[in-house]
Design a protein around this nucleic acid. Structure first.
Lengths: 156, 156
DNA sequence: AAAGGTAGGGCGGTGAGAGGCCTTACTTCT
DNA sequence: AGAAGTAAGGCCTCTCACCGCCCTACCTTT
């Protein structure tokens, strides 16, 4: 348990997700024929596709599939993700997966890590672990334990 | 008419379409994860899509649509066209269009060039003319006249 | 005036390279 | 022993910058 606490101190503090909005992305838009309005539309559709339709649960989802789903050109979809969210496609996609994984880890302690991994759209342990660590700074089980611990603290 | 004859002499002679098969394309295949068997499969599907389904008549056809139609990754489809047929997507596509245009020009002298152009999948004069010239060496009307002329000669 | 033909701008395709995913195999922890 | 986590390597997808084609609009020819 001490080990976990040191992990909290070293990595989990101040982890409130910067979620930085790009400020000088307008210049980039000029490079291709993508208007700001169109970019905003595409952005919303992308978010709907993931948040409402949970496309990320499809473990074979690719950029083409997403572009298909929202009926927009793949180049533009890629560009919007890159410039607006400052991420590449997979990083963007996986954050949704990890987000759901975190919820499942907290909500249902009986679910194995493996089951959760498949549930949220990953196919392999390794991908899941590395993505999870990249986002949260912790491995899935550590995260589960720490969230449980913090929950206890708040109760006390 | 003299002008047409000089055009025949200068550009139309020996126009029997080389149709060169690529010989050293194996090297390129190694670069990506595309096996020769897969490439052959994709190649056949591409040809079926165009020759049987006449996809080229769709005036908005893009690489993505073709890839969708035959259910293969767009990069692989592109690679097969590039390496196997030694052409880029549009050149490849347009040869099918021009091929049908030539037939229509010969078969039905009443059809206007514009109608034929739309019929075979082009949207603009310019694209049609330049593509047609690239393939046949002549403009559509010249081609029609020359073919008619040669036909008359053969009759005589 | 209508058909044939020619020049710029934007979208789409291309190719090389980076980075992520997946597989296999190994180590650690319970 | 089984589940969790890590590491290395191959394959595949995405990305970025560039190039080429298609389209709009304007001349030229008949």
């Amino acid at each position: 348990m001490k080990r976990l606490l040191t992990k909290i101190l070293s990595r989990y503090l101040g982890d409130e997700k910067p979620m930085k909005i790009p400020e000088k992305s307008c210049k980039k838009y000029r490079k291709s024929g993508l208007t700001r309005e169109q970019a905003a539309t595409i952005r919303e559709k992308i978010q709907l596709a993931l948040e409402e339709d949970h496309l990320y649960r499809n473990n074979a989802l690719g950029l083409d599939d997403l572009a298909d789903h929202i009926q927009h050109n793949r180049y533009k979809v890629s560009q919007v993700i890159n410039t607006y969210f400052s991420k590449n496609f997979y990083s963007f996609l996986n954050e949704y997966r990890i987000q759901e994984a975190k919820i499942l880890l907290e909500k249902d302690p009986e679910l194995s890590v493996k089951v959760i991994m498949y549930e949220v759209g990953f196919n392999s342990k390794n991908s899941f672990y590395s993505s999870f660590k990249k986002v949260t700074g912790l491995s899935p089980n550590d995260y589960r334990n720490i969230v449980g611990y913090e929950y206890d603290v708040q109760m006390a």
